[in-house]
Amino acid sequence: MKKIFGLGLLALGLAVMLSGCGKLPQADIDAATAAIDSAKMAGANVYIAEEFVAIEDSLKSAIEKIEQQKSKMFKNFAEPVKQLQEVKMLAAEATKKAATVKEQVKQEVQSALGEVTTMVAENKDLITKAPKGKEGKAALEAMQSELGVIETSVAEATTLFDSGEFMTAKEKIMAAKEKAVSINTELKDAIAKYTRK
């Protein structure tokens, strides 16, 4: 009886040794996937898109290697585990980097929104301060209409900003800023010409 039991154990041990040497690194897969999700949440797919896609590719490659090992009789997950740990580390770095870039863009947009709003107000002020009555009142109508368009653009950029779409907001507000600056220059030039006389 003892012999039969001993043989059974030996056979089981051999079978386990041959077919299941490596344990599926589920914890490493989950950790790497969670790290990538965090990076995405931080906006890495928007603010450092190329880097983010490269990390995602690396995760896919590691999972392919895991499946490859799973397909084998003799499994060895050492290489994919190492790759998963690298993915986790890179994703953590990307999270930090994305947050920094996002904050920079956010600050840039916030500052531009403030600048354009101030400049629109300044331009409006310049228009009201411009000589009234016979001189120049109607000449500024076109500028007022342009300022109206810029204000609409600022409102749109603010909505984009509030919804966290900083990149698109940046594009919009920078265009509005360029136009507001050109009006400001034009207005100041016109006033300077007038006051010289």
């Binding site: 109607a138 109206g148 265009a175």
Partner: peptide
Amino acid sequence: IPVPAELTEKYTRGKLFYLEGRSA
């Protein structure tokens, strides 16, 4: 030329889109 205000507004809107396109 003193074109009507709505034309100036339209043109400014177009120019803003152009500036956004240039930035993109």
